[in-house]
Deep mutational scan, measured.
Amino acid sequence: HMTFVALYDYVASGETDLSFKKGERLQIVNNTEGDWWLAHSLTTGRTGYIPSNYVAPSD
């Protein structure tokens, strides 16, 4: 899985979304859904959809 880092805080707007904090590391499970990607937080262990423009590839 690709690892990304959150650029901003995001508060989930629905049950399927994943809240995260700036700097949180996320594994992308599925990024074929356009602007919303299914991600797994390496910080909280939770999985949900995130806005793709809130994250950047982590080196």
Rank of each mutant, 00 (worst) to 15 (best):
W37N: 01
E15H: 11
T47R: 08
W36H: 05
T43I: 12
N53G: 10
T47D: 07
E33G: 13
I50D: 01
A56Q: 12
R25C: 12
N53Q: 11
M2K: 12
D9E: 07
V5N: 03
E33N: 15
I28E: 00
H1M: 12
L26V: 04
A56Y: 11
Y54H: 09
Y8L: 09
V29C: 14
Y49M: 11
G45F: 06
D35Q: 11
G34S: 14
S19L: 06
T44Y: 02
R46P: 00
L18G: 02
T44D: 04
V29E: 06
T3S: 08
M2S: 11
S41W: 00
V29G: 05
N30D: 15
R46Y: 08
Y54T: 06
P57T: 08
D17L: 09
L42N: 05
V29Q: 07
V11F: 09
G14N: 13
T3P: 06
S52T: 06
G48Q: 01
T47F: 09
R46I: 07
D9C: 04
K21G: 06
G23L: 03
A6V: 10
W36K: 08
G34W: 09
Y54S: 12
W37C: 04
N53L: 10
N31P: 12
L18W: 03
T32G: 10
W36L: 07
G48F: 04
T47N: 08
S58H: 14
K21N: 09
S19W: 03
R25N: 08
W36V: 06
S19N: 05
A39F: 02
A56V: 14
P51Y: 04
L38G: 01
I50K: 00
L18Y: 03
L7N: 04
I50N: 00
G45M: 06
P57A: 11
I28H: 01
A39L: 01
T32S: 13
A12D: 03
D35K: 10
D17I: 07
V11D: 11
T16C: 15
R46H: 09
L7M: 09
Y10P: 00
K21F: 09
D35V: 10
Y49S: 04
S58D: 14
Y10K: 03
L18S: 03
D17H: 13
V11H: 11
S52K: 14
A12T: 04
T43D: 15
L18H: 02
T43G: 06
D9F: 02
L7K: 05
K22I: 07
P57L: 12
E33D: 14
T3L: 14
V11G: 05
V55C: 05
R25S: 08
D59Q: 11
G14F: 10
A39Q: 00
S41H: 13
I50Q: 00
E33T: 13
A6Q: 00
S52E: 04
Y54N: 04
G23T: 02
Y10A: 01
S52G: 07
G14I: 09
P51C: 06
Q27M: 15
L38E: 05
T3M: 13
P51V: 01
K22W: 03
E15C: 11
R25H: 12
T47L: 08
Y54W: 07
Y8W: 12
A12S: 09
G48S: 01
E15G: 08
G14K: 14
A12C: 05
L38Q: 04
E15I: 10
E15K: 12
Y54D: 02
E15F: 08
S13G: 09
G34H: 12
W36Y: 09
K22V: 08
H40W: 08
P51Q: 05
W36R: 10
L42T: 07
T43L: 11
F20H: 01
T43C: 13
E33C: 14
I28A: 08
K21S: 11
L18R: 01
Y54I: 06
T16G: 14
N30V: 10
A39R: 00
L18E: 02
H40C: 13
A6M: 06
D17K: 11
G23W: 05
G14M: 09
L7W: 03
Y49E: 03
T32F: 10
V5H: 05
I50Y: 00
G45N: 08
P51G: 01
S52V: 07
V29R: 07
Y49D: 02
P57H: 08
L26R: 00
L7T: 04
G45T: 03
A12Q: 05
K22C: 06
H40T: 15
A6P: 01
V55L: 08
N53S: 15
N53D: 11
S52P: 08
Y49P: 01
V29T: 07
S13I: 14
G23V: 00
S58Y: 14
D35L: 11
T3R: 07
F4I: 05
D35F: 14
P57V: 10
T43F: 07
Y54G: 06
D17Y: 13
T16H: 15
T43R: 10
S19D: 07
H40V: 15
T3H: 14
V29H: 15
E15L: 13
S41R: 02
K21A: 10
A56I: 14
F4L: 08
T44R: 03
N53F: 09
T32K: 11
G48D: 01
H40L: 14
T32Y: 09
H1D: 13
E33L: 14
H1G: 14
N31G: 14
A39P: 00
N30A: 11
W37R: 02
N31W: 14
I50C: 02
T47Q: 09
G23C: 06
G48Y: 02
T32V: 09
T16W: 15
Y8I: 07
G34A: 13
E33R: 13
S52I: 06
W37T: 04
T47P: 01
E24F: 01
W36F: 08
L42Q: 07
S13M: 14
G34I: 11
L26I: 07
E24A: 02
I28N: 04
L18C: 04
F4Y: 15
T47W: 12
N31M: 15
I50W: 00
T43H: 11
A12W: 02
V11I: 13
L26F: 15
A6C: 08
I28T: 03
G23Q: 02
F4M: 12
V55G: 04
P57R: 08
T16M: 14
A12F: 02
D17A: 07
K21D: 06
V29F: 11
T44L: 04
D59E: 14
L26C: 01
T32I: 11
Y8A: 10
